[in-house]
Nucleic acid binder design. Structure first.
Lengths: 253, 253
DNA sequence: TTCGTCCACTGGTAGGATAAGTGACCACTG
DNA sequence: CAGTGGTCACTTATCCTACCAGTGGACGAA
C-alpha cells in the first residue's frame, strides 16, 4: 500500500549526473570538468557536496583531479573497474544496452563451470551441506519467482564455496548489475526452471569432490540458461531497433 | 631516475585507515563507527575530510550510513566489488595474502582462454593487426622486463578485442591488483617468457577466426604461466610460515 | 629573447552554523 | 497497563566563510 519515500542525498545526485555524462561520452576522456566553485554554482548546491561527488568519481577512476589545476575526465574503459557495470547497463532513455547485458551474461557463463569445479575441490562438506539446504527450500517453494531467487542463491553459495575471493567480489558486481533486471529475468526464465535434478546432482558432485563432472554439469545448466537470455536480448534489440526506426518510444515487449 | 613524490590528501589517509581496519576484521561487520565529529577529533582532521572518506566507504559498500544513526560496517565479502582486491592483497605487515593472490591468478587463468576465443570471433582484423604490432615490439625488445610488459599489453589488446565490457572492467581490477607485484612477477616469470611463437600463433588464430584453436592455444600458455606463479606463491607461503614460526619478520625471499 | 616575479585561478583543509533523521525516555490517555 | 505521542540528546546532511597550497599564464626587468 504505502511505500518508502525515495530519499537521495545531494552528493549522490551530483555523482550520478556527472557519472552518466561521462559514461555517455557527453564528457569525453581528456576534457575538463568545470571548477568546483563553478559546478556548485551551476547545480545550485554547496561546494562541499560537489567535492564529495568528485571524490567518488576519483575513486571510480572516472576523473583525475590535481590541486591547482582542473579536473580531467579519464577513459573509463581503460581505467574503471567492474563496479561501473550497473551504470553502463542503461542509457539515458532507460533502454537496456544490449551489448553490456550480453557481456555480463557471457562472463557469468564462462566463470560458472570453473566455480563449480573449484567448489568441488575446495569446500566439499560444508558447501554441499548449504547447497542441499537451498535445494530443499527450492523443493518446498511453490512460486516460480521464489524458485528463481533460490536458484541464484544456490550460485552464491557455490561461489562462496569455491574459496576464491576474486570470484566472490566479481560476482557481487555482476549481481548488482542484473539486480534491476530481476523482474525481466524471472519472466524470461520462467519456462525452464523446473528441473531441480540438476541442482541436486551438482550438490552431490560437490560433496563427492568430482571436479570435472561438476564443471560439466554446471556448464550444461548455465549454457542453457544463458541461451535463453541471449535469445531474449536479441528480441529486445530487434524491437528497440524497430521502435527507433518508427520513432516510437515503446514499452518492453 | 626520479619519481613523482607521494602526496596524499587527508581524506585519502582517513579512507585507507578505515578501509584497512574493515578488511582486516578489526572492525567487524555489524559494528558501528564512531560518529563523524568524534572521528574528526580523534584523527585530528576536519569533519569535511572524514565525510569525504566515509562517502567513499559507502560507495565501496564497506559501510552503511544513515542520517540520525551511527554508521555501521558491512560484510565486504558479500557486498564489495572487485575494486577492493588491491586492498586485500597485503595484510597489515605488508605480507602478501597468498590466498588472495591465488584467487586473482586463478580468475585470470579461467577467463583468458575464453577471451581469446571471443576475440577470434569478434574483433578479427583490427585486433589481429594490433596484436601483430605488439608481437613486433616484443621481438624488437631486448630487456626481459620490456618483453614481460609487452606480454601483458598483448592480453590487454586481446581483452579489448573480445568486445566484452565486463571482461575489460574486470581485467582492469585484476591489473590494479597485481600492479604492485610487478617487480616480483618479472623476476618470477623471467625464465620462460622467450617463446614468442605462442603469441604469434595466437595472433594468427585470431585473424583467421579459429575460435576453438585460439582458446586452446591461450589455455596452454596461461596454464603454464599460472603454474609458475602458483609455485612461487607456495614457496612464499612456506617461507612466511617459517619466519612466523621462528618469530622473525623477514624480507621477501 | 629569457628569466624571474606576481597574480588570478585551481583544489585542499578547517571549523562554524542550521536542518533534519533516530532512538531512548517519559508523561499522558483510555 | 498497553499504547500513543511529545521531548531530548544524540546523529548525519547540507551549507557557509575563511584560509592554505599548488598551477600556469601575464608581465616586466635583465
Amino acid at each position: 500500500m504505502f511505500q518508502a519515500v525515495n530519499k537521495r542525498s545531494i552528493s549522490d545526485e551530483v555523482y550520478d549526473q556527472l557519472c552518466s555524462r561521462i559514461v555517455s561520452q557527453e564528457l569525453k576522456a581528456g576534457e575538463e570538468l568545470p571548477s568546483e566553485r563553478l559546478l556548485s554554482e551551476m547545480l545550485g548546491v554547496s561546494r562541499n557536496a560537489v567535492r564529495e561527488a568528485i571524490k567518488r568519481l576519483q575513486q571510480a577512476r572516472l576523473v583525475d583531479v590535481k590541486q591547482g589545476g582542473l579536473t580531467t575526465v579519464l577513459d573509463y574503459r581503460a581505467e574503471a573497474g567492474a563496479e561501473l557495470l550497473p551504470n553502463l547497463l542503461f542509457d539515458q532513455s532507460s533502454q537496456i544496452q544490449v551489448d553490456v547485458a550480453r557481456s555480463i551474461v557471457r562472463m557469468r557463463q564462462v566463470l560458472s563451470p570453473e566455480i563449480a569445479a573449484d567448489a568441488a575441490t575446495q569446500g566439499r562438506a560444508e558447501t554441499a551441506e548449504r547447497l542441499a539446504a537451498v535445494v530443499e527450500q527450492m523443493r518446498a517453494a511453490n512460486e516460480a519467482e521464489a524458485v528463481q531467487r533460490l536458484a541464484f542463491q544456490f550460485w552464491e553459495v557455490l561461489v562462496e564455496g569455491s574459496g576464491n575471493i576474486a570470484y566472490r567480489l566479481a560476482f557481487n558486481s555482476l549481481r548488482r548489475t542484473y539486480e534491476p533486471l530481476w523482474g525481466l529475468m524471472t519472466q524470461m526464465l520462467s519456462g525452464q526452471q523446473q528441473k531441480l535434478e540438476i541442482f541436486e546432482r551438482l550438490a552431490m558432485l560437490v560433496r563427492q569432490g568430482q571436479r570435472d563432472e561438476a564443471a560439466r554439469c554446471a556448464k550444461d545448466y548455465i549454457d542453457e540458461s544463458s541461451a535463453a537470455i541471449y535469445e531474449f536480448l536479441d528480441l529486445y534489440e530487434q524491437s528497440a531497433k524497430d521502435s527507433s526506426n518508427t520513432q516510437i518510444e515503446g514499452e518492453t515487449p
